Computed example of a mutant assay.
Amino acid sequence: MVDVFETISASSSPELQPNELLATQPIFEKVFKLVNETGFYELDDHLDLVKAIAIETKHENLEDELMHTWITMVNNLNTATSQEEFNARFALFTPIILKKMNAYKVATDA
């Protein structure tokens, strides 16, 4: 997660841009692979949480969806009371962030 924030903090823009988030995609993919190998996502409680977090919201475009998901994740991470809780929350949001990134990339590459 530190790598994600370091990548984003290197920006010269006053506001976070979708392309800056997309620059973190390889980090999220690495986290997803590592966490997936542990079986974390296969546990019923965790799978249910990921599904609940991934509920589609009503935004006008995929950029807003991506940014909303990012802000929701950061706000959620900021309420963690331990490193373990922080890590678990980050792991839960990782597949959702990747899904939003991929959808955004497909829409903007088309």
Score class of each variant (00 low, 15 high):
K105P: 06
E84R: 02
T79Q: 15
I71P: 04
L66G: 00
E56Q: 15
T7L: 08
L16N: 00
V35W: 02
L98M: 07
W70N: 00
A88N: 10
N87F: 05
E56V: 14
I8W: 01
F90S: 02
D3E: 12
E42D: 09
P26C: 06
T24E: 04
E85M: 00
I71R: 03
Y41K: 03
I71H: 04
A54Y: 11
N87T: 08
V35D: 01
E15Y: 12
P95G: 13
Q83D: 10
I97T: 02
I53T: 10
Q83R: 02
T79Y: 08
F32L: 13
S11I: 07
K99N: 15
A107D: 15
W70T: 01
E15Q: 09
E29P: 08
H68F: 11
E37V: 11
A10I: 05
F90L: 12
K33S: 14
K105W: 06
V4L: 02
K105V: 08
N102T: 13
H59Y: 09
S13G: 06
F90T: 05
I55S: 13
M101G: 01
A88H: 08
K105F: 09
M73H: 01
F40R: 08
E42F: 02
D3F: 06
I27Q: 08
V50W: 05
A103M: 08
W70S: 00
D45C: 10
I71E: 07
E65H: 00
T69E: 04
A91Q: 04
A103Q: 08
S13H: 06
S82Y: 04
N19A: 11
Q17I: 09
A23S: 11
L47S: 14
K99P: 07
L49M: 14
T94E: 03
L43N: 12
D48L: 14
A52N: 14
T79R: 06
N87V: 05
Q25F: 06
L47C: 13
V35P: 02
